[in-house]
Simulated assay, not measured.
Amino acid sequence: MPPQRALGVAVVGTGKMGADHVRRLHDVISGAQVTAVVDIEAERAKTLADAIDGCTAYTDAAAAMAAHDVDAVLIASPGPAHEAALREALGRDLPVLCEKPLTPDSASALRVLEAEQRLGHRRIQVGFMRRYDPEYMKLKRLLDGGELGRALMVHHRHRNLAMPPWFTEEMLISDSVAHEVDATRWLLDQEITAVTVHKPAPSSYAPAGMRDPQFVLFETRSGALVDVEIFGHCGYGYQVHAEAVCERGTVRIGDEHGPRLSADGRWGGRITPDYVERFEDAYDREIQSWVDATRRGGTTGPSTWDGYAAAAVCEAGVLSQREGRRVEIDLIDRPSLYG
């Protein structure tokens, strides 16, 4: 693709996340244009495509990827559909940004990883957007800098106002704690070796049959312990916090820093309602970084290996959640393609 031409992107999946990425690519990101949108619901795809000059609606991802004006693919469809789309893109040697999860389980993630290795170069970036959040980036720099010493523990809190009605208990791990899995691996630069899920008494606001909140404990290769509070129906807003406890100090991120109002004998501020607003800047940075790297002919950000490792940890987490026991994680040796 000539560097002066905008990157033609096909967005596969136009639900809440996909539609937001269509808006982002069209209105915010430089160097790219949405040339195709794909959704099994034809009318939804057509409505989005009709609002963008030069954009075509498809119901089949392979047909969109074969179009002459598609240079790259952004996958935002449900996780079970990712493997087929990823392998189609790799077969065409198209750059991909795939929203997490890479795939829903380690076996399918491994098949994608092996397909990319056969290609001989990286083409996939996985959408773990917290790596692009300014607060997480600052925490990473502090930990890498060494002035706080070795990280001994990390505390994560991940709270949602509520989950959609189709959200299952297993998805508390595979779709929500997946972010803390990647954040932990990235922040500490090491693999997670075991996971244990504990279930306190459920909130009265939890859906029938769901134990919510839950408490997840990771063990890492160096012996650090990492806990995650996942609360899917906290009822008051969306909050994500992390605190690293190190040998010579602690550092915490995620505290609200918006306007503080004092009036009518009260003081307080606003809590963001969902992840789209809380991590809007991170999503913008992530997509711009992907577009820039792709136009240079490269690949950046979380790799297929990161997607596979996260899938393996989440798979172990769901098993622990189901059986109430500690589960060890056994990854394959990391291929040289992923450094």
Results as ranks from 00 to 15, higher is better:
residue 57 A to I: 00
residue 82 H to F: 01
residue 216 V to I: 14
residue 232 G to C: 06
residue 332 I to T: 10
residue 333 D to L: 01
residue 172 L to S: 13
residue 230 I to F: 01
residue 234 C to M: 08
residue 316 A to Y: 08
residue 143 L to G: 11
residue 123 R to Y: 07
residue 327 V to P: 14
residue 295 R to W: 03
residue 79 G to M: 05
residue 30 S to T: 08
residue 209 G to A: 11
residue 326 R to H: 12
residue 135 E to L: 00
residue 128 F to V: 01
residue 42 A to N: 03
residue 54 G to P: 10
residue 26 H to F: 00
residue 6 A to C: 03
residue 245 V to W: 11
residue 15 G to I: 01
residue 59 T to L: 02
residue 274 D to R: 09
residue 285 R to Q: 07
residue 291 V to Y: 06
residue 188 L to H: 07
residue 38 V to H: 10
residue 239 Q to T: 13
residue 280 E to Q: 13
residue 290 W to H: 09
residue 38 V to Q: 06
residue 43 E to Q: 11
residue 2 P to Q: 11
residue 96 V to R: 09
residue 197 V to F: 04
residue 65 M to S: 03
residue 65 M to W: 01
residue 19 A to E: 07
residue 8 G to P: 03
residue 37 V to M: 05
residue 126 V to K: 12
residue 303 S to Q: 11
residue 309 A to G: 06
residue 245 V to F: 12
residue 240 V to N: 15
residue 11 V to A: 04
residue 26 H to K: 14
residue 221 R to A: 13
residue 136 Y to C: 10
residue 289 S to L: 03
residue 97 L to Y: 04
residue 211 R to A: 13
residue 135 E to S: 12
residue 64 A to H: 02
residue 301 G to I: 01
residue 202 P to A: 02
residue 212 D to E: 13
residue 158 H to P: 03
residue 243 E to Q: 14
residue 36 A to N: 08
residue 51 A to V: 02
residue 218 F to C: 13
residue 298 G to Y: 00
residue 125 Q to Y: 00
residue 147 E to C: 02
residue 13 G to I: 00
residue 280 E to L: 03
residue 170 E to D: 14
residue 243 E to N: 04
residue 250 T to D: 09
residue 110 L to R: 14
residue 5 R to P: 02
residue 218 F to M: 07
residue 229 E to G: 04
residue 279 F to R: 14
residue 93 D to S: 07
residue 54 G to S: 11
residue 223 G to Q: 02
